[in-house]
Design a binder for these strands. Structure first.
Lengths: 136, 136
DNA sequence: TCATACTGTAACTTTTATTATTACAGAACA
DNA sequence: TGTTCTGTAATAATAAAAGTTACAGTATGA
């Protein structure tokens, strides 16, 4: 995955949870995150694609959760949000003439997949509701 | 952590394992990875700092493992290599006037720490020897 | 029905992070 | 004592991320 996508998505989902079905627009959300509204809209588009949020266009529009917070699992959010592998996945091309170089990418991918699955498994133990309850 | 550090470190350690105590210089290693030798030397400096490798300066110098491969645990390597948190850890400063923004960084860090620990725990089940044996 | 306030998306710019390059002092060797 | 390394710093080039601007399309309501 990449840096801030997961953070931004969780921030968005938490806000949407806290306002209980009220529509929030991208500018408001961006104000809480302190980032650009377009970035929020892109992140919302992805959350929408994966069924976590619903949006309403036009005046008075905005977004809201598409599921109950207890049914949004952070492992699922992670998977929806991740774009690249967590570790590695660089464009580096090791030397194919070296026995190690030839196989390292494959071996690392295997290792990283296992590790990332362990991480996802941990995240999957928690729901948005749990996360949101951690706030005062 | 950051992108390629872990990949490069594991590549280095695997090469050193494969040559059985022979000294390898940074140029040779860089040739296998297909990257700049200075990058390798920096990575080696870090591995050295954490006791995984030994280096010999001067003509005919190079690096070798400082421990037996079976005693090098990939979770430890990960921890030695990581520089930033795996997830998040951006310079973003959420809005302190928003109840969610005010606490989100702290809450995310807690979540990320748990998740990263699950990942490290998984990596810790494997040693360099195991990893290296995965190669033909 | 038209001004307004949104979303969605694309193109472009700026900023930041990563990687490569150059350079050189100091160490070991033959 | 010249050669070949490490270690490290400074700088340049490249790539990735984030911000900005722009605008078509949609809903609302005066």
């Amino acid at each position: 995955m990449n840096s801030s996508h997961f953070s931004i998505s969780l921030h968005i989902l938490t806000l949407l949870d806290k306002v209980n079905g009220q529509l929030l627009n991208s500018e408001y959300i961006a104000g809480s995150i302190n980032c650009n509204p377009v970035l929020v809209r892109k992140e919302l588009a992805n959350l929408h694609k994966h069924g976590f949020v619903q949006s309403k266009e036009g005046k008075g529009g905005g977004s809201t959760l598409a599921k109950r917070p207890a049914d949004i699992n952070l492992g699922e959010v992670y998977k929806a949000v991740k774009q690249k592998g967590l570790l590695g996945e660089s464009k580096n091309e090791p030397n194919p003439d070296c026995p190690v170089g030839k196989q390292i990418t494959q071996q690392l991918n295997k290792l990283y997949n296992d590790a990332e699955n362990a991480l996802i498994k941990d995240l999957s133990l928690k729901t948005l509701k749990d996360f949101s309850l951690g706030f005062d």
